[in-house]
Amino acid sequence: MENFEFISPITIKGAVNQYKKGANNYYLAGGTDLIVLMREGILVPEKIIDLKTAGLPSGIKKLKTEIRIGALATLSEIEHSSFIRKEIPFLAEAAGKLGSPLTRNRATIGGNLCNASPAADTATPLIAVEAKFILSDGKKERRVKAEEFFKGVKQTDLKKGELLKEIVIPRSAGKGIFYKKSRIKLVDLATVNMTVYRAKKKYRIVIGACHITPLRIRAAEEKLNKAKKIDLALINDAAALVIKTIKPISDMRGSAEYRKQLVKTHVTRLIGELAGVEV
């Protein structure tokens, strides 16, 4: 790893200002992505700006109509939060399936999202609950929909210097299920991951690791949402639409064909479980 300047700003504004001073500066949260890339020489930052001192909100807040998760909340905090486990158990599940306990004790949800891997484990549940991300450039804040935050492999809607401050999740009585398949049971990147969510009889289907970003499959959702009664045939039709939409690649973790089969089987299963239909 090459040397760099390490900066511990004490405000968001300070962090952004520092960031903007160069073309090769990076924010540091848990470091579980960043330090790996630096070690491999893929990133050679001039300045590392530590967000942990910059006054970003951390922790999980329960408000009346929404839940707020600070960008610096660790995956362990989310996994073990009794509140998240009760209200968005599938997000807790997703957090608990990311990396190992050693990783999760450091890795932040903000880092997982800003790293913007198509396989990021916390992305599909957040898109499914229609979370919004609060982004800050030190002066102004703006909100983007989770779904619109991801722009491509390792690409986000963040503008230069902007950072992810907080995640806002509307409270609802919906139910969701997260599923992740990897080569080994735990501590592996997803071959595929997904969240299927149901609130007020409306479904949301989000698939990860099968496109350049996590992908919400609206066509399949509509198929289910329009139907009067959900039966196996309809679920199969919806699953077929999912398969039609995703564009997985073949890589070290599995072939495109295999990914499609995994998605087909499990999206069917998850919808079935939420709809109370035996599949």
Partner: peptide
Amino acid sequence: NPSFVDYKIPTAAD
């Protein structure tokens, strides 16, 4: 795949 990211060995969970 010269790393543990893509050369997987069993963990206790396996």
